[in-house]
């Protein structure tokens, strides 16, 4: 009875020290990401198929490898790294990493030569707005990137479910969530030849209990002199969390925090009253 009578002003006073204000840059980043999910032609919410081209794929009517209504059968093949779309005796190059229309659909050939995957996009389904844990200032740390034991590249699945060649970038130690853990860092290709992202694919005790079961990605923000900002409030789900079209990257061995990291993107709705 007493608590029901608690005035709103008092509730706000109690709430303010607990729920920290979302920093402007993080709010902006989340808004931009939502806009991209809603409007980009290659939004994961518009994806309807992802298949390895392998020995060849057919697209079109029933019986095709990828059934697309209103599309006459076409065949996609890869030879010496070149991807080709054959339809009615006409052969069209399908350029890697570039969107190509096919009827009301869009095609994207992606991935490394010899391991090309074909993504098919249609009309975007309803976009599920990403849901986040409350902003947690304690989930922000400054870390030092230690160089890798061996300088090498590895072929692995990027957050968008496509094989990329990533460089071993080293490791960082995280001690804010249980005993100190060394997390492996990899350098993923960016959107231009000179750009890249340092990414950590990690698991923690919230996986399957509020966050995506397979783990989440978080990128390092450079601070200079080998120091980086590691902000788990920026942790993001791989695309497989949005659509079963995308395969999930296998967790990186050893990249597990034993305590819960209640920050960043959730999986499923937030508990009532949290947001």
């Amino acid at each position: 009875m007493h608590s029901r009578a608690l005035p709103l002003v008092a509730m706000l006073c109690f709430a303010s020290p607990v729920v920290a204000q979302l920093p402007q840059d993080l709010a902006r980043e989340r808004t931009e990401y939502l806009t991209w999910l809603r409007s980009a032609p290659t939004s994961p919410f518009a994806a309807i198929a992802l298949q390895r081209v392998g020995a060849g794929l057919t697209l079109g009517p029933a019986g095709s490898d990828v059934m697309l209504s209103g599309v006459a059968q076409v065949r996609v093949t890869e030879s010496a790294g070149r991807v080709t779309l054959d339809s009615g005796g006409v052969s069209t190059p399908l350029t890697r990493n570039r969107v190509m229309p096919l009827g009301s659909y869009r095609l994207l050939a992606a991935g490394a030569a010899g391991r090309t995957v074909l993504l098919v996009f249609g009309v975007p389904r309803e976009v599920r707005t990403p849901v986040y844990f409350p902003f947690a200032p304690a989930a922000i740390d400054t870390v030092t990137l230690r160089p890798p034991q061996r300088r090498q590249s590895v072929l692995l699945l990027a957050p968008e479910g496509i094989d990329v060649e990533a460089d071993e970038a080293g490791s960082v130690t995280v001690s804010r969530f249980g005993p100190p853990v060394s997390l492996r860092v990899r350098r993923f290709p960016g959107q231009s030849a000179e750009e890249w992202e340092l990414e950590i694919y990690f698991r923690d005790a919230t996986n399957g209990r509020g966050s995506y079961p397979a783990g989440r990605f978080v990128s390092l923000q450079p601070l200079g002199n080998g120091r980086y900002l590691l902000d788990f409030n920026r942790a993001r789900n791989p695309f497989c969390a949005y659509s079963s079209v995308f395969p999930c990257p296998a967790p990186w061995p050893g990249n597990t925090l034993t305590e819960p990291v209640a920050a960043g993107e959730r999986y499923g709705p937030a508990p009532e009253g949290e947001q």
Binding site: Y33, W36, A40, T42, L108, A158, E160, Q191
Partner: peptide, 8 residues
């Protein structure tokens, strides 16, 4: 705009 997310 990129294919892997916004470049902002």
């Amino acid at each position: 705009v990129g294919n892997r997310g916004p470049r902002v």
